[in-house]
Design a protein around this nucleic acid. Structure first.
Lengths: 155, 155
DNA sequence: TTAATGTCAATGCAGTTGCATGAAACTGAG
DNA sequence: CTCAGTTTCATGCAACTGCATTGACATTAA
């Protein structure tokens, strides 16, 4: 019965987590796409590569930062490379690996995406929640997911 | 500056919402799949069909309940029908539509899935949160997503 | 009734994901 | 050094998704 009560609450969280995620992600993606900008994951890659004033990263590292499966990242980088936003450099000291680096176009694209992205977040992520609630929600969600670096524009 | 503070918090929520969702969904799906059971969306369909002691639903209605795109639902039902879990009946009074109904196998499958599903939820959704926190989290998430019916086993 | 419009569901196609595997390169024990 | 085991990244294939469209029927207005 204490058990019953618990599972019920867990279910509430489960259902609403999925619903909230769908709701928010769909809206933000739609807003960004509506401006003719690339998908959010592209931004995430570019953001990671722009940290600390621009850096090279191994795909393996990106994988961990971004929570993307290896084969998906491989193909995501294919697409971004084809679009001229990132380069694959040979990796000194490890012949298997590579270093991924944003091209100038990639950096420009990141800067170009950010305003729209930011606007979409403000508009669609919890527009009705108070500052206090936002903070509380972030804290509770943080207890569920692993840790993640802050988002933003990288500046 | 008040604006700055706000967007920062919004971003925290955004990032953690995605991270939490990924984390939880991936684990629950993996756990259920590991037992050779069908994907979660199949359960969701069967659950909806089992409410109120078993009912027929139009795809359009399922669509709204389940937050699935029309074309995806159409094909999801293809698969479930092929697996013998649901039937498409002709819809009296509307020649375009159809009524979806769980077969006996479908109802059996739903009952068979539930224990594993429940166990996975208990284990992977917020295992470290107190009852109070769960309730709070559900409330805050509820403010973000639209409303949704409770999950569970339908009994 | 008819014509225009709207709703329900299916489908072709291209793009994406998951899974399993493979090839190349690194590592470390002997 | 050599070989077994591991890590890094790519890829063939099947399944799934999103988008656009179609076809069938329903509804409304005239």
């Amino acid at each position: 019965m204490a058990e019953e009560k618990r599972i019920e609450r867990v279910q509430h969280v489960w259902v609403r987590l999925i619903r909230a995620h769908d709701n928010v992600v769909r809206k933000v993606e739609a807003a960004v796409k509506a401006k003719g900008l690339p998908p959010i994951e592209w931004y995430d890659v570019l953001l990671e590569l722009s940290r600390e004033g621009g850096r090279k990263l191994r795909p393996v590292e990106l994988e961990k930062e971004l929570l993307v499966a290896q084969y998906n990242l491989s193909r995501l980088l294919d697409r971004m490379e084809a679009a001229g936003l990132v380069e694959r450099l040979t990796c000194p000291g490890d012949g298997r690996g590579q270093m991924i680096q944003a091209t100038p176009e990639g950096r420009a694209m990141q800067k170009r995406i950010w305003p729209s992205y930011r606007e979409a977040l403000e508009e669609h992520v919890a527009p009705d929640l108070s500052e206090k609630d936002l903070e509380q929600l972030a804290k509770l969600l943080g207890a569920i997911g692993g840790h993640l670096r802050p988002g933003g524009c990288g500046n």
